[in-house]
Amino acid sequence: MTLTDVPRTARPATDPGLDRARGGANRMLTGGLLVAGLTVTLAVLAVVAAASGQLSIPASEVASGFLRGIGLDIGPAASHPRADATLWSVRFPRVAMAMVVGAALAVAGALMQGAFGNPLAEPSVVGVSAGAAVGAASAIVFGLTSFGAWTSVVCAFVAGIITTTAVYLFSRTGGRTEVVTLVLTGIAVNAVAGAALAFLMFLGDTQAREEIVFWQLGSLNGSRWEHVLVVAPLALLGVVLAARLARPLDLLSLGERPARHLGVNVERLRIISILLVGLLTAAAVSFCGIVAFVGLVVPHLIRMIAGPGHRLLLPASALGGAVCLLAADLLARTAVNYAELPLGMVTAAVGGPFFFWLLHRTRRTAGGWG
């Protein structure tokens, strides 16, 4: 008997519901493994980063030093008299800042890509980084001291938020925000901000120009607990609010018209997303300067591994961004003896080739998510 002799009703048939259930279970398993893997990687990287530097500290002493700092005298004693002081005043704040900034930038990138349906979108599209640079440069050149040593930080944050709002307002047409209009407006605003930054560098003296260049290159050098305590609540607020947008972002991925039929206010969703992107990015770059490509690379890699669902994508992007920036900062301060590479240069050196690959891949898939 051949297969054609078997009655049609007797042939095995696939169950669409069963296939969907299996696909959902596989995605949940992949997502769980991804989150667990990123968490373990982040913990290991944190210990390695805290142990590395001009004063080398064994990993076991890093853990015991952390426990002693929170009041638990467990583990081996420090082999160097300044080990605990170095860990708590220099290494731990820098590690924490790298995690917070990386998570904020990655979640901001995931929001941009989800809200506008474009894998090439990133926070700098809305001009927040360029605006923050102009704000910080203005404080440096004109010697503003209203907020003491934090003047440039405050000016960078406020200017970043204002620039983001301006890009959004200028890109509205007929009560709607089109993706192409937003991108073109962002390019124009970035160009104006670049011209303003060049003019400020022309006005400033040698010291001011060096400070502006250092800020533009990005660095976590000098991170302290008081800085972390400012950035972390803003980043946490942005990440929590972003997580609340997971379902409407998933519906928006079906297309604007289907999303509207399913009850999503697309324009309001995009307004909230842009504001959250401005908050997350401005908080991140205010203290560490411009760090490129984290918001582009990390969310796209997470999406390729775990799929487009934002309930997993947003928290996994936060973990992935923390891992990415912590690894980049570790490389920046250990690659060259007695010197520190600019953090923005390291992330751009990795993100640039990835961006070229992403453009090629996107072109092959006709602009889709692949």
Results as ranks from 00 to 15, higher is better:
112 M>N: 07
124 S>E: 11
124 S>V: 02
39 T>I: 11
48 V>Y: 12
30 T>A: 14
82 R>D: 09
69 G>P: 00
118 N>D: 09
131 G>W: 12
140 I>R: 04
25 A>M: 15
47 V>L: 12
35 V>S: 14
35 V>R: 06
25 A>Q: 14
83 A>Q: 10
104 A>I: 02
136 A>V: 07
34 L>K: 02
53 G>R: 06
38 L>E: 09
39 T>Y: 05
126 V>C: 10
100 V>S: 11
96 A>P: 12
102 G>V: 02
41 T>I: 01
132 A>I: 05
117 G>C: 03
120 L>Y: 06
78 A>K: 00
55 L>D: 06
115 A>H: 08
102 G>A: 05
84 D>I: 00
69 G>S: 01
137 A>S: 15
43 A>C: 12
107 V>R: 03
102 G>T: 03
137 A>I: 12
26 N>K: 14
133 A>K: 04
76 P>F: 05
59 A>Y: 00
128 V>W: 05
75 G>T: 04
69 G>A: 02
112 M>G: 08
113 Q>W: 06
84 D>C: 00
43 A>M: 11
33 L>T: 14
134 V>L: 13
50 A>F: 01
48 V>K: 12
67 L>I: 10
37 G>M: 10
78 A>R: 00
28 M>Y: 07
136 A>Q: 09
34 L>D: 01
66 F>V: 13
65 G>F: 01
97 M>F: 07
126 V>G: 08
26 N>T: 15
123 P>G: 10
68 R>K: 10
105 L>G: 05
112 M>S: 08
90 V>P: 02
53 G>S: 10
58 P>Y: 08
116 F>Y: 14
100 V>N: 11
59 A>F: 00
104 A>M: 04
83 A>S: 13
29 L>D: 04
97 M>I: 09
82 R>Y: 03
31 G>H: 02
37 G>R: 11
40 V>Q: 07
138 S>C: 14
133 A>C: 05
55 L>C: 09
61 E>H: 03
112 M>T: 05
83 A>F: 01
139 A>R: 05
94 R>P: 11
61 E>M: 01
115 A>V: 08
139 A>F: 04
89 S>G: 03
92 F>D: 03
81 P>N: 00
78 A>I: 00
66 F>T: 04
114 G>F: 07
54 Q>W: 02
26 N>L: 15
64 S>A: 13
66 F>K: 01
